[in-house]
């Protein structure tokens, strides 16, 4: 049950500079480096033309950034999300963004072969689903498209603020 261990082991970077990236604009800078890569992974997992709304239409990349930078988010997982992206970048020799769908599929399935990679992909999927299926107040699930696709709706009352205005 040692979460921290599996988060750290397996990445060649091992809890690198991000742990010190205390100031939020620092973090934003780090995030910007991997933003497009993460967005591409999200889009690959949640493409257009599926029965559930696509990552790009739901703007889940913004959601992901706002989520992991919020103080309620586990600080280890925040770092893990960035490191996992860098790791993928390394493994694909910086080519991921220019790959076609087939190549991306292959690259991600290869990444999934390691438990580190599979944990990271699973985490990206979770955060993305959190966006698509959470209350629209969080900025994703636009016009309740996520809920409509499932014919399942959040209960009443709906939140007026994010995170009970913590």
């Amino acid at each position: 049950m040692k979460r921290r261990n599996f988060l750290i082991l397996g990445s060649v970077l091992s809890l690198s500079p991000y742990i010190d990236a205390k100031a939020s604009n620092d973090f934003e800078k780090q995030f910007r480096k991997v933003k497009n890569l993460i967005a591409a992974v999200q889009s690959h997992m949640f493409p257009e033309g599926s029965k559930i709304p696509s990552a790009s239409a739901m703007d889940v990349n913004t959601f992901l950034f706002e989520t992991i930078t919020h103080k309620s988010y586990d600080k280890d997982i925040r770092v893990f999300i960035l490191e996992g992206a860098e790791e993928l970048e390394l493994q694909t020799k910086g080519r991921f963004l220019s790959m076609d769908t087939k190549e991306k599929e292959k690259a991600l399935r290869t990444y999934e072969n390691t438990s580190y990679g599979s944990n990271w992909l699973s985490r990206i999927m979770t955060v993305t689903m959190e966006g698509i299926f959470s209350d629209p107040v969080y900025g994703s699930n636009k016009k309740e498209a996520g809920w409509k696709a499932l014919n399942a709706y959040g209960g009443l009352p709906r939140p007026k603020t994010r995170y009970v205005a913590l």
Binding site: F46, G49, S50, I52, A152
Partner: peptide, 26 residues
């Protein structure tokens, strides 16, 4: 909703994604 959508989306030890995921979840 989120936790139900997130359940049972693995097949043969691999994550299901893409339009196959859409089918499964709906």
């Amino acid at each position: 909703i989120i936790s139900r959508a997130r359940k049972n989306n693995e097949e043969h030890g691999r994550l299901v994604w893409g339009s196959e995921l859409g089918e499964k979840v709906t």
